[in-house]
Design a protein around this nucleic acid. Structure first.
Length: 644
RNA sequence: GCCGGCGUAGCUCAGCGGGGAGAGCAGCGGUCUUGUAAACCGCAGGUCGUCGGUUCGAGUCCGACCGCCGGCUCCA
């Protein structure tokens, strides 16, 4: 009789042949035996430690979602005879399953599938685990080519289904699937779920393989958790920068321009200017030099840089007139900055040279990837190229990290998730250069003390990179900063400087963008702040609402006074009620609203309405101006209190 | 680019199984001169994304293209 140690209960005698589940609380849906996730039906053969896995545990949700995916696949197979099922893993917040179906299914089919799933849940079919020899599994899945492909690859790749001669199959009722498990004990134990959306997905993520139909679902331990999740989605929807961009009149994407090309309206223009001035000034303080470069260059430049061979599919097609050389619109700024460096003989005293530009670039992104400002075809990088000696490299990278953290902190972004991406297979640098470049980034990361993870082969074609991802107000991660280390372009362009030894030397180059792009960053900020920008960024900072026509002159004087102090006020002189004017200001998320009428004119004191709806009475004009100026100058993330 | 969905007024959306386009908000005009999230009356505004097809007749059915949305693949 094996003794098992149940977490929190101490040793327990488990009768021979009894599953671990019998020693666990009834809420458990799976178990962790010696750290490994198993079914409740698992029968231990020796002394082990056992922990229950509850539905709301991270592991439990994983199991729940996985089992829900199975039930969905079962339902689909019931409803669509001839369905072939591929893979169906749990993912963040839910699960998906990929199918090859005889018909294309639409959103209305989701309801049918969901209804069938509920029948399966009601039937409470037990999940039965079986170890099956490969040959038998191949027979069982004779009409399931995707499953056969997986079985055939078992053993070739670690972790797929099961290594060795047998594979694991889970069966409930007549339906079976190849699966490592574990699963909930029976279909009645699924939690709250909902099918969410349909998508196409390539088999094994490979564009050359067939496109399958993917069904996404979400699953949670309880109905309340499911509803909370749906509310989170609504919150994200409410923050969508494409919606807010229109509502707040910041920018638009006129169809006439072509996909992924935005025009910035006056309010968006102010927002951009604020961001741009902020980063430009900070760069000047940090020893960067501002440069400017054109949007086009001859083909030869891009041949030299390697873009035409390694980056061609992301470039707008070449343009040329009969008899003239061909030109490309620039997808990157680096070659231009190289030319600025090369415009005269450089001394070691010139290094490090930090050339910075808000450079507009155009990339021919595939249509399906475009996503408002977050993924556009035309955008403005806060780009810089630091050209330095190799022995200055680590120090310069650290300087970039430091500037990155300072800039992002200003917006309330802290605790970045940092990745180091090594070079991809296709590259313009030698393995030796790649190693030195990667080494410098790694050294800098180690010295900075920032935790990071390594992404193999995710770097750009000319160098490895470090990316900073920041979490927004509702916990989503955004890739913003990128720092790339490049030994390749200096070589290709023959960049040189004269050293102390009077010899010519090759510099190295850091490519970096801290906001990433003004467009993308603005999009992220809109979602982060839900459109309610801190005062220094708000296009309109104060809305002044005169009570009646006779108060308009006073309102204009007040506005003028605010403007003189460097603030951005607007007067709403429309013949509307006060209530309507306040509402309008609120909808535009203007930080402060001042209703002015006889009372204000007589007393000289203002009642300040903040964007959150709170009102502060009795604020003098001087006080109001001073507090707002301070709030804007300090780039405060909190509204002024008008206290003390 | 691929898969699925969608495209009606500036915005949000109605519009039946094909038989002459509607509402609310916004805009404009007027009345009201108003006290912290929507005053009242009126007016104007749409080649129903584009092109082609089916039909006596297409916003409605079919096809192609354009664009958008969600994924896949890729990325600032």
């Amino acid at each position: 009789m094996p003794r098992i140690h149940v977490a929190g209960k101490g040793p327990v005698e488990l009768p021979e042949g009894e599953p671990v589940g019998s020693a666990l609380p009834p809420e458990a849906i799976a178990a962790r035996v010696d750290g490994r996730l198993v079914d409740l039906s698992y029968v231990p053969k020796e002394e082990v430690s056992v922990e229950p896995v509850l539905p709301e545990d991270p592991d439990g949700l994983h199991v729940l979602r996985h089992s829900t995916a199975h039930v969905m696949a079962q339902a689909v197979c019931d409803l669509y005879p001839g369905a072939r099922y591929a893979i169906g893993p749990p993912v963040e917040d839910g699960f998906y399953y990929d199918f090859e179906l005889p018909v294309a299914i639409g959103p209305e089919d989701l309801e049918r599938i969901e209804a069938r799933m509920r029948e399966i849940v009601a039937a409470d079919q037990p999940f039965v685990r079986e170890e099956v020899p490969r040959e038998e599994a191949l027979r069982r899945f004779a009409d399931q080519p995707y499953k056969r492909e997986i079985i055939e690859r078992v053993g070739e790749e670690e972790g797929e289904v099961a290594a060795g001669e047998t594979v694991t199959v889970y069966r409930n009722d007549g339906w079976q699937d190849l699966c490592l498990g574990p699963h909930v004990p029976s279909t009645g134990r699924l939690g709250a779920f909902k099918l969410m959306k349909l998508a196409g997905a390539y088999w094994r993520g490979d564009e050359a393989r067939p496109m399958l139909q993917r069904i996404y679902g979400t699953a949670w331990a309880t109905q309340e958790d499911l509803e909370a999740y749906l509310r989170r989605l609504e919150e994200a929807e409410r923050r969508d920068h494409r919606r807010l961009g229109r509502e707040l009149d910041l920018f638009s994407f006129p169809e006439e321009l072509g996909p992924g090309l935005a025009v910035w309206h006056p309010r968006g223009g102010i927002l951009r200017k604020q961001l741009e001035d902020f980063v430009r000034n900070l760069h000047l303080e940090r020893g960067y030099q501002l440069v400017a470069t054109p949007h086009l260059a001859r083909r030869e430049l891009w041949d030299t840089s390697g873009h035409t061979s390694k980056y061609a599919e992301l470039m707008y097609p070449e343009m040329r007139r009969e008899g003239d050389p061909a030109y490309f619109v620039k997808p990157m700024n680096c070659p231009f900055h190289v030319l600025i460096f090369r415009s005269r003989t450089r001394s070691y005293r010139d290094l490090p040279m930090r050339l910075a530009e808000l450079g507009g670039v155009y990339r021919y992104e595939r249509l399906g990837v475009l996503h408002g400002l977050l993924r556009a075809r035309g955008f403005t990088q806060d780009d810089s190229h630091i050209i330095c000696r190799e022995d200055q490299l680590v120090e310069e990278i650290l300087g970039v990290f430091d500037l990155t953290l300072e800039i992002h902190r200003t917006f309330g972004f802290t605790d970045p998730v940092v990745t180091l991406s090594t070079l991809p297979g296709e590259t313009i640098v030698t393995p030796e250069m790649a190693e030195r470049a990667t080494g410098a980034l790694r050294d800098a990361l180690d010295r900075s003390g920032l935790p990071y993870r390594v992404a193999e082969g995710e770097g750009s074609f000319y160098g490895p990179k470090v990316d900073f991802h920041f979490r927004d107000a509702i916990g989503r991660l955004w890739q913003l900063t990128t720092v790339q280390c490049d030994f390749g372009l200096p070589e290709r362009f023959g960049m040189e400087y004269v050293g102390e030894d009077n010899q010519r030397h090759r510099p190295v180059m850091i490519h970096r963008a801290i906001l990433g792009s003004i467009e993308r960053f603005t999009g992220v900020l809109i979602e982060h702040y839900a459109g309610a920008f801190p005062l220094w960024l708000a296009p309109e900072q104060v809305r002044i609402a005169p009570v009646a026509d006779r108060h308009v002159a006073f309102a204009r004087e007040l506005a003028e006074r605010l403007r003189t102090a460097g603030l951005r006020p607007e007067v709403d002189d429309s013949p509307e009620t006060v209530g309507k004017k306040v509402r309008a200001a609120q909808l535009m998320k203007v930080p402060y609203t001042l209703v002015v009428g006889d009372r204000e004119i007589d007393s000289g004191a203002l009642t300040v309405r903040r964007r959150d709806g709170t009102e502060i009475p009795g604020v003098s004009v001087e006080r109001f101006v001073a507090e707002l100026v301070r709030e804007a100058e300090t780039r405060s993330l909190e509204p002024a209190s008008f206290e003390g």
